[in-house]
């Protein structure tokens, strides 16, 4: 991850950080924000953010790389920053109008939103073809083996995949009849997964 995300020019447009009073313009502005947000999350492999502060909650990158990620909602060169109220509005637009994000827990937004720069169906495809290519169809895999292990040939695509997202992806595979989930003894966590 040596290259920085290239923000489009509108990111340096001073009023871009103020909520526009004209409804048509505002809609256009929110669309632009969402487009940038999705590109930014994809570039830095960010899968969840706080819809209130805009803080990055999970990225698949390594710790020291995450520290270097530039801010999305602040542009120091023009001294502008989107306020929390406006950030919330942007995430609302992303969730309701674009269906590109989902609250982890609808009752408590502070837990964060999962950002779908890749759709759940696409994630399911990525995960399935990894298991297929490594010849592990039919064997029981742990969550560790699927996302953390260093010796199972994990691709960058799924290394460090966020647990909450993994659960959603696995549920898609279950629905497609391609996976079975084995719960741990206390019944709260996934103990193992069999993908067939």
């Amino acid at each position: 991850m040596s290259t920085a995300f290239e923000f489009p020019k509108i990111h340096s447009f001073i009023p871009f950080y103020t909520k526009q009073p004209n409804a048509t313009v505002l809609n256009n502005q929110l669309d632009s924000w969402c487009e940038i947000l999705l590109g930014y999350c994809q570039h830095y492999k960010i899968t969840s953010m706080s819809p209130i502060t805009g803080k990055i909650l999970h990225s698949q990158l390594e710790e020291d790389e995450i520290k270097d990620i530039p801010s999305l909602f602040e542009n120091k060169s023009i001294k502008r920053v989107a306020n929390d109220e406006f950030k919330t509005l942007i995430f609302k637009h992303l969730i309701s109008n674009q269906n590109k994000a989902e609250l982890k827990n609808p009752k408590s937004p502070e837990n964060g939103v999962i950002v779908f720069w890749r759709s759940l169906a696409e994630w399911a495809q990525v995960l399935y073809s990894f298991v297929q290519k490594t010849g592990q169809l039919g064997s029981v895999l742990t969550v560790y083996e699927l996302t953390k292990s260093t010796d199972s040939g994990l691709t960058d695509d799924i290394r460090n995949l966020e647990y909450d997202l993994l659960v959603k992806v696995l549920k898609v595979l279950v629905k497609q009849g391609k996976a079975q989930i084995l719960m741990s003894e206390d019944g709260h966590e996934i103990g193992g997964v069999k993908i067939v």
Partner: peptide
Amino acid sequence: WVDQGESETQFWEPSW
């Protein structure tokens, strides 16, 4: 477009 980033409100012509 309206900008309220500073104490005085600015009005910008949108050709970024």
